[in-house]
Design a protein around this nucleic acid. Structure first.
Length: 369
DNA sequence: AGTATTTGACCTCT
DNA sequence: AGAGGTCAAATACT
């Protein structure tokens, strides 16, 4: 047991080292991957040892278990999730983002690019939402100020020479689009797909920057109460202090995307097993008109009909300009999905596996985000 | 039938 | 008053 504990401590040290070097390593995907791999190996060994100890002290009955390989992948998954949810990671995000902001050097963008602008407390958001439900001009007048807003800037994700809308792991339903005074590009208004079903108040606005068309400004308002993007809130969400905000995780995903930009082609080629020089494995869909779409009245607003290549894992992992705990779930689930059965196995009964499949299905139907 | 987007109209806020 | 935000009917797709 002492040996195992020592090993765990070693793993923690490795993780700390990785944390302190992440900004630097983000420019060097290869050592970064090695470091991650090393940490995973250490903790996996620990887990195996602990499970062995546990079984020795708690003999069966055991419920039917998926193959060990599947367990390993899923355990990695949940472990990484927990790690990502720690406050340390939040600090790390800010650090990485500061670095990125310095790199981009866009004036006035630093605060926004740093991930958060007005990050109010969750309770404030809840209060604001509650207030909005009651009428009264005084309360309404305060509403805009009280509802928490988090603005991030996301580079327009590109695959090949086409652009993809920012992906953040949640499912959104577009409910409006508006020409904004002084802006060349319209602003899109989105609400959580589960707004009606689960009274999820989360919303977001997406707009391309006038002076930098390669960047989306995404403003999140309200917190997701639906927990998972594509499933019922069957599990209570983690406490607010442990839950990554959409903005923060979005920013992390952005950082990861930037750091791995060089790897994208290789990854896509690996995933698609394609000989295409672009590494694209295109399942193209039209923005707008998704599961249905395109209807509605007359038209003074722009109609966007750009086409986007989409892949399950590639989209989950690289195409997103933003992320969340959920999207990290999706990334790792997508990874599970991509793994051949012999390498990691699939647990088709796993809830989150289903999330991935559904999200993939949504994308196939042309869902915006 | 269910679910999605589009978009003119309307509401809210400054 | 005007800009921003939301609603909801119309329409499309599976």
């Amino acid at each position: 047991m002492d040996q195992t504990l020592a090993l765990i401590l070693h793993g923690c040290n490795l993780a700390r080292q990785l944390e302190s070097n992440l900004v630097h390593l983000s420019q060097n995907p290869e050592p970064l991957a090695k470091s991650c791999d090393e940490i995973l190996t250490v903790f996996l060994t620990c887990k195996d040892r602990l499970q062995l100890l546990f079984r020795q002290s708690n003999p069966p009955p055991l419920p039917p278990q998926p193959p060990q390989a599947v367990n390993n992948v899923l355990d990695h998954h949940s472990g990484i999730q927990q790690w990502l949810r720690t406050a340390a990671m939040e600090r790390l995000h800010a650090q990485v983002l500061e670095n990125m902001a310095a790199c981009t050097g866009s004036s006035g963008a630093s605060a926004a690019a740093a991930g958060t602008v007005a990050d109010g407390s969750d309770s404030a958001a809840v209060r604001a939402v509650a207030a909005s439900s009651s009428s009264g001009s005084q309360q309404r007048r305060r509403r805009r100020d009280e509802i928490e807003r988090r603005t991030i800037r996301v580079p327009v994700p590109r695959i090949g020479n086409t652009e993809v809308p920012p992906e953040d792991g949640f499912t959104w339903r577009k409910y409006g689009q508006k020409e904004i005074l002084g802006s060349r590009f319209p602003r899109g208004y989105f609400r959580c797909t589960h707004q009606k079903l689960y009274h999820c108040p989360a919303k977001k606005q997406v707009q391309r920057l006038d002076n930098d068309p390669d960047t989306y400004e995404v403003t999140y308002r309200g917190q997701h109460t639906c927990h998972m993007s594509a499933t019922a809130p069957s599990v209570a969400p983690p406490p607010p202090d442990a839950q990554l905000t959409a903005a923060t995780t979005s920013a992390l995903h952005q950082a990861i995307s930037a750091a791995t930009a060089q790897q994208q082609q290789q990854q896509q080629q690996l995933i698609a097993n394609s000989s295409s020089s672009m590494g694209r494995w295109a399942m193209e869909f039209r923005l707008g008109g998704g599961g249905g779409g395109g209807g509605g009245g007359g038209g003074r607003d722009h109609i966007h009909q750009a086409e986007f290549p989409v892949t399950d894992m590639a989209a989950a992992m690289f195409s997103s300009g933003s992320s969340s705990t959920n999207s990290m779930d999706l990334i790792f689930n997508a990874a599970v999905d991509v793994l051949p059965p012999a390498a990691g196995g699939l647990d088709h009964d796993h809830d989150q596996y289903d999330d991935v499949k559904q999200l993939a299905g949504d994308r196939g139907k042309g869902k915006l985000v």
